[in-house]
Design a binder for these strands. Structure first.
Lengths: 216, 216
DNA sequence: AAAATTATTTTGGTCTGCCAAAAATAATAA
DNA sequence: TTATTATTTTTGGCAGACCAAAATAATTTT
């Protein structure tokens, strides 16, 4: 199996199982990887032989501890690259994901280590997602959706649930980024939208938007 | 054809034809790419269909102008990455080639442009090889081998003919790098070795070595 | 519980990049 | 100009990553 294929599967299984080693369905994998389920069946069988996943037919797939380890390493590389691209090379947070998707496969731990050092071994990437260290350790941050916030309180934007370029560009238009403070002025219970104050300006945010903003 | 395969062929043809559009033999390509000649036959036929090479059977292969253009772009990416890795991330000149070999395939002109800007759009990479600009232009430097130098003269190391890690590490041991001045004290006509002064120390360099040192 | 839906696996194929061995073509030496 | 040798091409095959369609299995609906 090609290393790149393996890495993409592991990473995707990892994300679908939400970091924990939950069972992932064949179809979900197929959708995420843009292949048909039959292809996934083949692939997970091979991953099973490589002892990277547990797999029982018609049941589902789950990472082994070895698989998790490798997955975390890929996640680390991806997020280090994202942060590096944003911080050192001035890419927008809506651009870095796609590039990191390619760069994460470069096989050099030394390179990743140097990149990490250059940006000060950060714990979070530009989207507020935690970066595992060399040993795969990271603390899962306690975020909640802005949608669940209380009127009158002020929050700090700490992450986004939607990583799409469209959403991120939308946030850019209001100069919102990780660290921006958002005050909830009013919640419209008709449509769930929120009147907020961001960067000293009043902004109304739709339920769609506030559901994808993670705050502290 | 996979983009990566195409790029590797174009780059290799380019180097084998020494930058000019000389005809390259099938076997030479096979050797460089670590495949058998039969594989090359297949590949160049496909490259021909893509109008990237001229190809007549049992004659040889030569880049078309389109092919040269693409080849120069790959060479550019490779050398930008080499320089970036050395300059910004502190890699040794013996390490950068291998890494650049992977990084050159990342498909983002914007990335290369940013990297280049960061290192000041240099005209030469850490080995003294010229970096083509976005349009593929570069001036071929007028180097000569130190082996052909005259006794008593002082030269500036401007390039290396051998890019192997072994050779580069050897040079590191004597702190020789691009820009180092080398004074030729004496030429031993028994074995062609040279007595030189490098970094204020007397060093005897074998014919092997001085044949691979390019100087001005 | 039977029918209908959805998910998974199997089966048979394609395409790409590769190899081995044989056949055809140079190119070189005698 | 024959032999000999080297190179190139052809042919038949293989593995990886995919897909389409058919066959199974599991899940939901009714």
């Amino acid at each position: 199996m090609h290393q790149q294929t393996i890495e993409n599967y592991l990473k995707t299984i990892y994300h679908l199982s939400d970091g924990n080693s939950f069972v992932v369905t064949n179809k979900d994998l197929a959708d995420r990887l843009h292949v048909i389920p039959a292809t996934v069946t083949e692939a997970v069988k091979k991953l099973h032989q490589l002892k990277l996943v547990e797999y029982e037919k018609s049941y589902g797939t789950r990472l082994t501890s070895q698989g998790i380890k490798q997955a975390l390493n890929i996640v680390r590389r991806h997020r280090i690259w994202e942060t590096y691209l944003a911080q050192e090379l001035g890419f927008g947070w809506d651009e870095v994901h796609e590039l990191a998707e390619e760069l994460e496969h470069i096989k050099s731990d030394k390179l990743v280590q140097k990149l990490a050092k250059k940006i000060g071994n950060p714990a979070y990437d530009p989207h507020g997602d935690p970066i595992p260290d060399e040993k795969g350790r990271f603390q899962k941050p306690e975020f909640k959706k802005l949608a669940d916030a209380k009127v009158g309180r002020t929050y700090t934007l700490s992450g986004v649930a939607d990583h799409s370029a469209a959403f991120l560009k939308f946030l850019d238009r209001y100069k919102m980024k990780i660290g921006t403070t958002i005050k909830v002025v009013e919640i419209e219970n008709f449509d769930g939208s929120m009147l907020t104050v961001c960067n000293s300006k009043e902004v109304r945010l739709s339920l769609q938007v506030v559901s994808n903003l993670l705050v502290r």
